[in-house]
Every structure is written in C-alpha cells, then in structure tokens.
Write a protein that binds this DNA or RNA. Structure first.
Lengths: 205, 205
DNA sequence: CATACAATCCCCTAAAAGCAGGATTTTTAA
DNA sequence: TTAAAAATCCTGCTTTTAGGGGATTGTATG
C-alpha cells in the first residue's frame, strides 16, 4: 500500500516544491495540502495520511502546538517538522511534541524520501545539518526561569527600573532586585545588557 | 521572445516550487537555478536572464549585496527579491540596491506572473502584503547611528562595561560614555535594557 | 512529612550607568 | 575650502545595578 503524504505549510512554493519532488515517486500517494492549522485539522477529520509534513510557523497557530494536537488525536500519523530554520528551540519542541522527524526547507529529494522511510519505520529522522545543530546546542542550556522571573525580565526589557517594576508588580524593590540577581545568575551574565541579549537569543522576549 | 527566468535560492523546495509554478507558462523560459551567490555570478557571465528571482538570504553572501553586484554588472536584468520574511529592512535594502520587485515565498502563481510582467515593463512590483509592511514601517524611524556608535553598541550587548569597552577601543571611558548617551538619545530610550531590546528589534545586533 | 523551590523581604557596599552641562580635534562631504 | 558630522575628551552629581550576605512564608511533590 502506498504511503499517504499530506503537508501543512503556508508557503505555496514549499508545497509545490515538495509536491514536485515527491509526486511521481512510486510507493507514495500525494493527498494534498493545507495552508493553515485549522484546515489541516479539518482535513484530518475525514482522511488520514501516514506522513504529515508540518511547517513550524503557521499563520493561525504554531506548528509546535498543532503537532501535539494532531499527535494526541491521531497517534498513528507520523509528523515531520518542516522549517527554514535550523534552530534548536524549534527542533527540540517539535520532537518533544511528538514529531518523528525534522527536515529543513532546503532538503533534497533524497532527504525527503529518507525521512519518509525512516518515520514510517517508527524511527526518528534527523537530517545531518539538523543533527549538527542539536549537538552544538544540547550543551547550551536554556536557563529555566520561573513565572515571576519572566515577568520581571519582560519589564526590564521594557526599560523599567527596579523601582518601577516594584510598583508595577506591587512588590518591594528588594524582591525585584532578587529576581534580577537570579536572572543574571541563571543566564550566566554579569549585567543587564548581556541579559537582554541572551533572553532575545533564547526568544524569551 | 520568451522572458528568460533564472533563480538563485539555497532552498531546493523553493526552486522546485517556483519551477513547477512557472515552467509550463507560455512566454516564459526557465533557465535554471543557482544555489548560492558565486554560482549565480558564474552563470551570469555566460547567460543573461531577463528576470532574476533572488533569495535575500544566501549561504555565501547576502542577497542584498549580490543584488547591487548583479545590477551594476548587468543593469538590464530585473531582479525580484525573494524572502520568507515580510521584513521592512530587507525589502527596503533590496529595493535600494536595485531590485525591481519583492515577493514573499508564499506567493501564488498569479503573483509571480504579475511580478514578472510588472518588472519587465520597467515598473516596480510590490505584493499587497509587502506593501502593507512598507506602509506600517515607513513611519517607524530606524535610528541612524554612526560606525563608532555601532561598535560601542555591539560591545555593550556583549556585556562589557564602559571601562572594558574603553580598553577594547583604546579610548577613554568618557568617550564611551558619550557614545552611550548618544545611543540612548537616538533610540529614545532611558536605559541599557531598552536600548538592547530596540537594537535587536531593528536587527542591529 | 520532609524538603525543595518559588516568591517575598531585608542589610550593606561598590561599581556602573545615567544626566547635564561642557570642549576640542578629526573626518567627511557639499 | 569651509561647514557639518563624527569622534574624542572633560567635570560634577545622582540614580541604578551588581555582589555579598542573609531570612521567611507558602506550596507542591515525592
């Protein structure tokens, strides 16, 4: 039986690109595409692909969230994350949320076919380039900050001083100061400038 | 005579996507593709497309730079910028560097055809979505900072103090302090945190 | 039920950044 | 070649951060 392929991506060219790469492959059946999360879910109510290529960035909902939704509702569908970016945070989250593979949008036909074969075998497919990113990033720990610390961080980024943050959060300045110290420690930086830069790097801001 | 189309983009799927959308159009001749700036320039030495779709992000050189290079060497080639991002800075720079159009990677076939028609007519093609971005951004003034201010800004973002920056640049602390004051004034912010956030927003860091 | 963690608060000191004025010398561009 | 812009340096003062200690309370979670 042919492996049924579906894709959700808001970039028309990517859809066409993948389609033209895979369309005439034997053993594959092209089921079509959706251009947003909602129509993807609507499609899945009626039909079930084997492999679902899923863009990480969708207009109505993040691919990350859609991934866990789909995986909960239809555990048999193998999801392959699709992104222009070789960015660790995306890769990590997609895999955590049940994706069985991750390919970049500059993947070759061979990579796509290998990804399909690998995931329907129940294994995880990670392309070489993505693997490198994972390896370089897995040592770099993203600081685990608390809810309150994140609030403080955002207000710091807004340009508020400790006093102003204290007023905004109805706590004392010393409390804000403590959170701030903890942020510096957790990000392993020694001042606000580096803190904000790191936080944007980790896309916490 | 058919309009000759060439594309430079490092994403295989985009190339295939555009090719499958345009390949069978009458009046168009698909010349092929390059996947980086160098091979694009090599191709142009031998053959001349009429319209050149150019990715803004290329592996060996930015599309922005390649754009002005190509336009200087071959003014008759109409360049259409190509990007996933509807980002003002990119659009602006591509157009400044001689691009005649700008389309997003989620463009439809109709948009691509319209872009081609428009630019070979000598006009500028801007898709509706991109136009909106231009309008919303042209009011937002990006601060114009000097070379030295940018150096200081980068070092601030690295987490260096005024003293350390002074040492790094072989100037006095007061000089660094002045640059810093000017940065705060130009970005219209009142402290470092907001400065770094703004600077990353404007992608100066 | 212990204990880990988050969130809150306090003290003190030193360092760094921010604010308000200056000034001089190079560069750059009209 | 001359005016504007950039880069350099200064003094004095205030506010804010950073670094070093703490401590208490509540709330989850094993």
């Amino acid at each position: 039986m042919a492996t049924k392929i579906f894709i959700v991506d808001d970039h028309y060219m990517i859809i066409e690109g993948i389609r033209s790469l895979l369309q005439n492959e034997v053993g594959l059946e092209w089921m079509g595409h959706a251009m947003n999360a909602a129509s993807c879910l609507a499609f899945l109510e009626k039909q079930r692909p084997d492999v679902l290529f899923m863009d990480v960035n969708l207009p109505d909902q993040s691919g990350i969230d859609l991934c866990s939704l789909v995986k909960k509702a239809y555990p048999k569908i193998w999801i392959v994350g699709l992104s222009s970016f070789n960015q660790f945070s995306f890769i990590e989250k997609m895999l955590q949320n049940g994706a069985a593979g991750y390919v970049l949008k500059n993947a070759t036909k061979e990579e796509l076919l290998e990804a399909i074969d690998t995931v329907i075998d129940g294994k995880t497919y990670i392309s070489a380039a993505v693997e490198t990113t994972i390896n370089t990033n897995k040592n770099i720990k993203t600081p685990l900050i608390t809810r309150r610390e994140k609030e403080v961080l955002l207000l710091i980024a807004e340009g508020l001083t400790n006093g102003e943050i204290a007023d905004a959060l109805f706590v004392s300045i010393t409390t804000v100061d403590t959170h701030r110290k903890n942020l510096l420690a957790k990000f392993e930086v020694k001042n606000t400038a580096a803190l904000i830069r790191m936080a944007t790097k980790y896309q916490l801001i």
